[in-house]
Structure formats: C-alpha cells, structure tokens
C-alpha cells in the first residue's frame, strides 16, 4: 500500500468519526438545552415535558408493561411489513404478467394511492373490530399500495433488449419472469423495503391511535387523553428509537 493510499484511508476514517461525533453532539446539545430550559422554568414542562421527566416515565413504565407495549408495536409492524412485501410482489407480478389487468386497474391504484387511508379507519373498526387485525389492515392499506407501485415500476423498467434476448433463446414467459424480471429487480425490492418499513410503522401507529389497548400508539393516545404530556413525549421518543432500529436492520440487509 502506498503512503498516499494510507493517507487517503486515514482521511476517510477521520471524516467518518467527525460525522458521528457531530451527530452525537447535536443530540446531547438538544437534550441539554431542553433540560436547562425546563430547570430554569423558561418552558412549561407540563406542555413540553423534559428529558429527566421522560427518563422517570420510562423507569416507571418498565414496571408497567413497557416492553409489552414495544413488543406489540414491533410485532404489528413486522407482520404488516412481511405481508405488504408479499402483497407488493404478488400484485406487481400479476400486473406485469397481464398488461390488460394492469391497464384496467391503473386508475384504481392511483385513487387508492392518493386517498388518505386514515379516513378508512372508522370503516375498518366497524368491519373488523377494534383489535390487532384492524391495525394490521390499516398498516397494509398504507404500505401495500406504495410497495405495489414501486415494485411494478421496477418490473416494467426491465431492459427490453434483455427480454428480447431471452425470447431469442425461446424462453417461456415464466422463465423471463423468474430469471430476468424478478431476479433483476432484487435491488428495487430491497429499496422498497426501506420505504415500506416506515410506511408500516406509520400505519401501525395510526391504527393504535384509533383502536388499540396496547402498543406505543396507545401510550401516546392515552397520555394525550389524560393530559400526561410526559407519557406522550416518552411514546414519541420510544417510537423514534424503534423506527431507527427497524430502518437500520433493513439497511444492513441491503448492504449484504
């Protein structure tokens, strides 16, 4: 290895550490300012809570089913994530396979995509009941449409010349689908996972806000109903951590 290369690697490492340091620094400064402002009564902790109060709430919650709430939200998110991925791949495949169906369904997909799905909440509660199923269906409604559209667009942008090449080898449509369209779009599918996981989390929280008796969404809703802003802020804090962990796992999958 030449000395220039060593220098180059060093510079890159230094930059990486610097970025990480600043990321941590921003977090610490934010927490400190928040705490100092509440200590000096510059802000009303009844409305804004404070890091210390959030910490206390978490400690308190640990004895009161905190992990159960986190587990419920995670479980609902993962189930809807897997289901919406499957729905996305299956429906995108059907649309790719049959152009007629795709043309017929196109306006409906557009309508479903632009419709604010939360508006369907009350209907879901009446149809399915105020339970976990409703929450998962709500998350599916939000995430599946985007996942279908992203994967279908990927399938459709498969290089036409490669399809012709396979046809020149007398490939069947199934062979074109499995060996080229599906295989060539693994990256599109993995990229769609990133959008999907956040959409599922949004859907699950929306569902929990509407119907649930447990989960992080429930904590937030319950907190706001009893004017316990500490609980609301704690919920939001836990949610941020959960969404980051889920996103991080997907990024690792993508890397590998």
């Amino acid at each position: 290895m030449s000395s220039e290369h060593v220098l180059f690697l060093k510079k890159r490492k230094k930059e990486k550490i610097l970025v990480l340091l600043f990321q941590i620094l921003i977090f610490i400064v934010f927490i400190l300012i928040w705490q100092v402002l509440s200590n000096t009564n510059r802000i009303n902790t009844f409305l804004t809570s404070s890091p210390k109060l959030i910490y206390k709430t978490i400690i308190n919650l640990i004895n009161n089913n905190l992990f159960n709430h986190i587990l419920v939200t995670t479980y609902e998110t993962i189930i809807s994530f897997i289901l919406s991925l499957l729905i996305g791949i299956i429906i995108a495949s059907i649309l790719w396979w049959n152009k007629f169906i795709s043309k017929v369904i196109d306006p409906y997909l557009t309508i479903l995509n632009s419709l604010p799905k939360v508006a369907l909440g009350p209907i879901l509660i009446i149809w399915i009941g105020a339970n976990t199923k409703s929450i998962i269906v709500m998350a599916l409604l939000i995430s599946s449409i985007i996942s279908i559209i992203t994967i279908y667009n990927g399938f459709n942008s498969t290089d036409d010349n490669k399809i012709k090449l396979m046809k020149s080898f007398n490939a069947s449509k199934w062979q074109i689908y499995t060996m080229l369209v599906l295989r060539g779009n693994i990256n599109t599918i993995i990229n769609s996972l990133k959008i999907n996981i956040s959409m599922c989390l949004i859907g699950v929280i929306m569902g929990e806000l509407l119907v649930s008796k447990e989960g992080i969404g429930y904590l937030i809703m319950y907190g706001s109903q009893v004017f316990n802003l500490n609980l609301v802020m704690t919920g939001i804090f836990l949610l941020s951590i959960l969404s980051y962990i889920l996103y991080f796992i997907i990024s690792q999958i993508k890397k590998n």
């Binding site: 290089d159 010349n161 490669k162 012709k164 090449l165 020149s168 295989r183 060539g184 693994i186």
Partner: peptide, 14 residues
C-alpha cells in the same frame, strides 16, 4: 436454429 446478437451486449449483471 438462429442465434441473435444485439447492439448492446445485454449481459445479466448478476
């Protein structure tokens, strides 16, 4: 039997 070669090499990257 015909064999077809295209303008682009259309190799499968994976």
């Amino acid at each position: 039997k015909f064999g077809f070669m295209f303008q682009q090499d259309t190799l499968f990257e994976w």
